[in-house]
Amino acid sequence: MLKLISVRLVAILVGLGFAVAVLWAFVIGAYNAATEEPAGHLPYEKPMDLSWSFDGPFGKWDQQQLQRGLKVYDEVCAACHSLKFVAFRDLEQLGYTEGQVKAYAAAKQVPGIDPNTGEATTRPGLPTDYFPSPYPNNVAAAAANNNAIPPDLSLMTKARGDGTNYVASLLMGYGPPSAELLEEHPEAAPGPGLHHNPYFPNLNLAMAAPLNAGQVTFDDGTEATVEQMSKDVAAFLTWTAEPTLVKRKQTGWPVMIFLLFATVLAYMSKKQIWAAVKPKK
């Protein structure tokens, strides 16, 4: 009994100690909050809520769109951004034939070794090769881009919140900062080598607006507006980030339906078994 009392006495003292310590921090924090100007955030915008063919539990890829997106990546983004987790062979999922993929890969130069001298060289790509990086290494990438290394795009739409919308919004969002913004946040003015974009968390990014209307000629005749190209490349990058996305959702349905069925059975079975011992109403 004595021991129990002492355990609880110690506990009460320890508890009060923690509470006093943290409330002391609270008092100081509250005093600081009351006397100091809070550090404001730059007001950046949430990505636009666009609609995508692969949205929702029944979503599917729009292969035409992915093919257009590939073309945008190929002719615009690939100049600076790698796509290192995607292999040429994966492009068959976009509806290309084996021969088309082979030809596409062969048109790319990938790092190789000269079979006679062993020196590093380049060779035409094979379907098993991965998209080559535009720079041999990070140092070269930094040197060519004013120290801002262009990130790999393979996983970009998963590496940002609401990624598909974010990528599309960012690409469409370039433009000079508004006068009101600059008045309220003079620090938001783009510095040298930076470009204003309301969707980028600190409003200024090193990448200049990459897309211009008509820059790409789509094979299916779609007009290459900035909006069209932005959406198409965002859709393509959603596919590169998760090629199994549609398969995942399609696998999910039979699993859910089966589980629902099994759970209903389990419920009825449980009810039957318990009926015997439940009090009669």
């Binding site: 089966f258 589980l259 099994a262 059975l265 389990a266 079975s269 039957q272 015997a276 011992v277 009669k280």
Partner: peptide, 26 residues
Amino acid sequence: DMATSDDGIRRRDFLDIAAVSAAGIG
């Protein structure tokens, strides 16, 4: 107070077997 009519027993067995089979299939 267990209900022991033939009908009840059979229905119960059927449900149990179905539920266990579903678990097995899963």
